[in-house]
């Protein structure tokens, strides 16, 4: 029987290599044909359209997808860092007992909302709101090259922020609560205010957990497909600062993950498209590999710097 258990453990631990193998193997044609230019060249949308014509040989350029993924992830991580740290401090230090429990349930509720529901609500509320109240009236004249219609980088960041926030908050609260009470007493006894004790002692001491939680939240944001595809405009476009930061946020994007669900239906029967999509999936795998190992590394590095010697895993 232990042998059976062992094989279950081995399977669970190693199945990820199967995932990597099958996805990367199918991406080989694209990477062989294009090499690095796959991620340095643009024109994804037209290329996909052209690929439906069997006679044409198509090269794909996923650079705008990469840019879109990075911008939306970084934006969402920044927003949820600010909001989430506030919520975590509120939950673990400031909230009166009567508010703490209900708020904790709300955060869990937010974590339980499926991504397609986030996409639906984002599409119904966030996108029209941006279109009506944020997009300047003369947007079409200022930015003639791309439609500025509400579905945008900004919408993607907004929706992603609230999707990843509960995961960050949960990890952050856990690591704040794990800070020994004696650190707090030490700070208070030195005449520091409660707030300064939180910001100067507790938050820095919880930093390994906070950073690890943030990196895991980032992994979630990079991989989110459905919700982003619903609110981001689905145009492979690299937002730029040519018209200032506001217009950059209002430009539509298409992310790597959302391109896969948008294109990956029947189009999978066309080998060149299928391989290009597998190449996108390989990029996502690479990100999740980097981010999950990065979370673990950051956790260990911060702990080591603080002289905490015990080995600890990252709370997922």
């Amino acid at each position: 029987m232990p042998l059976l258990l062992a094989s279950a453990a081995i399977f669970s631990g190693l199945v990820v290599t199967l995932v990597v193998f099958f996805v990367a193997y199918n991406a080989v044609p694209t990477f062989r044909a294009e090499g690095l230019s796959f991620i340095t060249r643009g024109g994804w949308d037209t290329q996909i359209n052209n690929a439906f014509t069997p006679s044409k040989t198509v090269f794909f350029g996923a650079e705008p997808l990469l840019i879109g993924t990075l911008l939306s992830t970084v934006g969402a991580v920044l927003v949820s860092l600010v909001l989430g740290t506030g919520c975590a401090i509120f939950l673990s230090e400031l909230a009166p007992a009567a508010i703490r429990r209900p708020f904790e349930s709300l955060v869990q509720l937010l974590a339980g909302i499926p991504s397609v529901v986030f996409g639906l609500v984002g599409l119904s509320i966030v996108v029209p709101f941006i279109q009506n109240y944020v997009v300047p009236a003369n947007a079409a004249n200022v930015v003639p090259e791309i439609p500025i219609e509400g579905a945008s980088l900004l919408a993607a960041i907004t929706v992603l922020s609230f999707m990843i926030l509960p995961f960050f908050v949960t990890v952050a609260v856990d690591s704040l609560r794990a800070i020994p009470r004696s650190y707090v007493d030490g700070g208070l006894a030195l005449g520091m205010t409660k707030w300064r004790t939180i910001t100067r002692i507790q938050v820095p001491a919880a930093a390994p957990g906070l950073v690890a939680g943030l990196v895991l939240a980032a992994a979630r944001a990079t991989g989110e497909a459905i919700a982003v595809s619903m609110v981001a405009g689905a145009i492979a476009f690299s937002p730029n600062l040519n018209h200032g930061p506001l217009y950059m946020l209002l430009m539509p994007i298409r992310t790597i993950a959302s391109s896969i669900v948008e294109t990956g239906g029947d189009a999978m029967s066309i080998p060149s498209i299928a391989s290009a999509l597998f190449a996108l999936a390989t990029l996502l795998l690479l990100f999740s590999l980097i981010l999950s190992l990065g979370a673990r590394w950051a956790f260990a590095w911060f702990n080591k710097r603080m002289g905490v010697r015990q080995a600890g895993g990252v709370q997922t």
């Binding site: 650190y183 030490g186 002692i201 001491a205 603080m306």
Partner: peptide, 12 residues
């Protein structure tokens, strides 16, 4: 000033 039973240096 106050010093506690368990030494409690901050992790810095």
């Amino acid at each position: 000033g106050m010093v506690f039973q368990q030494p409690n240096p901050f992790p810095m």
